[in-house]
């Protein structure tokens, strides 16, 4: 791993007018004595234990039994595939419900204009910013322009930058 120049990291902090100084800060964590001497051995032991777990061995079958097994397995696969198709329909429905619930939650937070809750929610919800912008574009969520005060916009831009969304795209979505 090639590290970045310590000086460039320090300068970057200086430009940000930060009092942080990585050269004086080790984090303060420590490990038990000889931890790193014994860790590779512990990992090797764990690998050996995992490898030693008996693998499933397909039993040797006589030809007739093999044919019978193939037929049985084919039937089983057919039944499972039908069940899978039926279940997929219901899972799609569930996914739609989950998405709706998340968007509703987003709206309810939005009404309160709670900046930190919004921030946490966007990070934790798993919704992408595109999801949210898509909803914004539909106009259902905007209750007058005053909803988007400067603080909220700033937060949204921060999130947009975090998710790598171009600010032009964000702006055009808010127009």
């Amino acid at each position: 791993m090639k590290k970045d120049n310590k000086e460039s990291i320090r300068k970057e902090l200086e430009e940000l007018k930060s009092s942080l100084d990585p050269s004086k800060d080790t984090g303060g964590f420590r490990v038990p004595d000889h931890f790193f001497d014994t860790l590779p051995g512990n990992i090797s032991n764990r690998l050996s234990t995992e490898s030693a777990k008996p693998a499933f061995v397909f039993p040797g079958l006589a030809f007739k039994r093999l044919i019978a097994s193939i037929v049985s397995i084919s039937l089983l696969v057919g039944i499972l595939f039908s069940l899978f198709l039926m279940q997929r329909e219901s899972l799609n429905g569930q996914a739609d419900l989950d998405y709706d619930r998340q968007m509703q939650e987003f709206y309810s937070i939005q009404f309160d204009m709670d900046r930190s809750a919004l921030y946490d929610f966007v990070l934790e919800s798993g919704l992408t910013f595109e999801d949210i912008l898509f909803e914004l574009e539909n106009g259902e969520f905007i209750h007058g322009e005053d909803v988007f005060d400067d603080m909220l916009l700033e937060e949204m831009f921060e999130q947009a930058i975090y998710y790598g969304i171009e600010s032009n795209y964000l702006l055009s979505s808010l127009d």
């Binding site: 940000l16 007018k17 930060s18 942080l20 921060e158 975090y162 790598g164």
Partner: peptide, 18 residues
């Protein structure tokens, strides 16, 4: 994530830390 987005994220983090 893009390097630019990470730089912005780090700068925000530093400001919050401050």
């Amino acid at each position: 994530t893009s390097a630019g987005a990470l730089k912005a994220s780090y700068h925000h983090a530093v400001k919050k830390m401050e």
